[in-house]
Design a protein around this nucleic acid. Structure first.
Lengths: 241, 241
DNA sequence: CGGGATATTGAGGTAGTTCAATCCCAGTGG
DNA sequence: CCACTGGGATTGAACTACCTCAATATCCCG
């Protein structure tokens, strides 16, 4: 199975990739590693020499506070480069944690550097990948800073549905949701207790519910409206980059 | 006066720049434009063909909500490329607004593209610039999501002081602060009223105060402690990138 | 079938909001 | 040099969204 399949799907939603470029992406991968649920995949502050492409499962970027509280700054799906930022930064400012059992393709930084020396277009697409991360961060700042708990959770669900669709996961208003309510709380800047209450409201209003490790969205339009969700920030338009 | 001076200072804190590279950066600039306080410099959704380097003044990235509320997702100082993200994204997901009178160096995207074709190292440094933006976004997510109002404002002040120092602005515990309390509120996800009360506390505790359009930090150590401020996320180490 | 993790519910508390009145002060014009 | 103006800052009082703590219920896995 081709471990770069999801990444290619993700990039092809934003630009045209030649076969040659797809091969070059596949050639980036040195090996594949698997991590258990809860495993810390990258530790804040450690020097980085490889970057990891998520192939299967879900991972999160986690920033800890002194008192043990945490804020998750991004949720990663297959096709996401969870620490491509480490290529430029050399040291990450946060942990990356496997939220479920997860498989990663390992990409040595030398190979990325080689791409920047020889393939300008592919370089720009990798750069783009990190720009989309930043755009997601900004949208989350709006959520965390200004939206109600109800809208925060609704917005997270909308984003998840759209991003899963990009890489061909989920269907019929059903998507995998292997996260706990504590995860949702740490993603949204809420407490797990309040997430539980909020989910009850969303379910009662017939917008969305979590059931059996799945996210069921009954009415995406209504959910998006409640969340003020506009997918523009995901930059899905296919154009020369 | 060299309009890329602050940018060079900023990059030289992270890596070594050759004279040749400095010249190449200067050659990026096509012209310089000035904007009035409050002017929208880049409008969300408009196609981008140039990027803007802030030379003088302060600018913010602003995301609006339906009801007129807003969240500011970044505060930009001289030396910051306020919409380098537009080079890859082609369309921005937020407005850029001049908070004060501000001067920008205009960099056409063709010239940036040319850099990606001919100068891998400089390309990586421009990429790095956007990675630092993303790192700042993440730290702000922690602030907005998990810190108290007191710590949010304290953290903002710490970041501002450090980033001003990088580009050689301010001294003796005094830095320019031409923003209103409404700006601070929109940066931190608070109300202006609560910012006012919070500033009173910070002043009373002898940590920091705003006075005469200036930020005065009486005791940076204590302020940093109150904010849980750790500058690691600004990635100031000078190393090969 | 048992046990630990996860989720739910209730009751009470609080940080930050809302609204509205007042104050301050830097410009501006006379 | 002073009065006027308007944006920004401050203050008070009431309110509420979300938190905290704690008890119970449910799910999932071995």
């Amino acid at each position: 199975m081709d471990v770069t399949r999801s990444l290619v799907l993700k990039l092809e939603r934003r630009d045209v990739l030649s076969d040659d470029e797809k091969q070059a992406l596949a050639a980036l991968v040195e090996r594949v590693v698997t991590h258990r649920p809860g495993a810390r995949v990258v530790r804040e502050g450690d020097p980085q020499t490889v970057s990891l492409l998520l192939v299967r499962g879900i991972a999160v970027r986690e920033k800890m506070l002194r008192d043990g509280e945490k804020q998750l700054t991004e949720l990663h799906l297959p096709g996401d480069f969870v620490d491509l930022h480490g290529f430029g930064l050399k040291v990450l400012d946060h942990n990356v944690v496997a939220a479920t059992e997860a498989e990663f393709a390992v990409v040595p930084h030398e190979r990325l550097e080689r791409i920047t020396e020889t393939r300008p277009h592919l370089t720009r697409l990798l750069w783009l990948n990190t720009l989309i991360d930043a755009a997601i961060h900004r949208e989350w700042l709006v959520s965390v800073g200004r939206r109600s708990a109800y809208a925060k959770v609704a917005h997270l669900f909308c984003e998840l549905a759209v991003r899963f669709d990009v890489v061909g996961i989920g269907e019929n208003g059903r998507w995998p949701f292997p996260l706990t309510q504590q995860h949702v709380a740490d993603l949204c800047g809420l407490t797990a207790v309040h997430v539980s209450r909020t989910l009850k409201l969303l379910t009662a209003d017939g917008l969305a519910q979590l059931k059996g490790r799945e996210l069921l969205i009954a009415d995406f339009q209504k959910l998006a409206k409640a969340a003020e969700f506009d997918p523009a920030y995901l930059h899905l338009a296919r154009m020369p980059r």
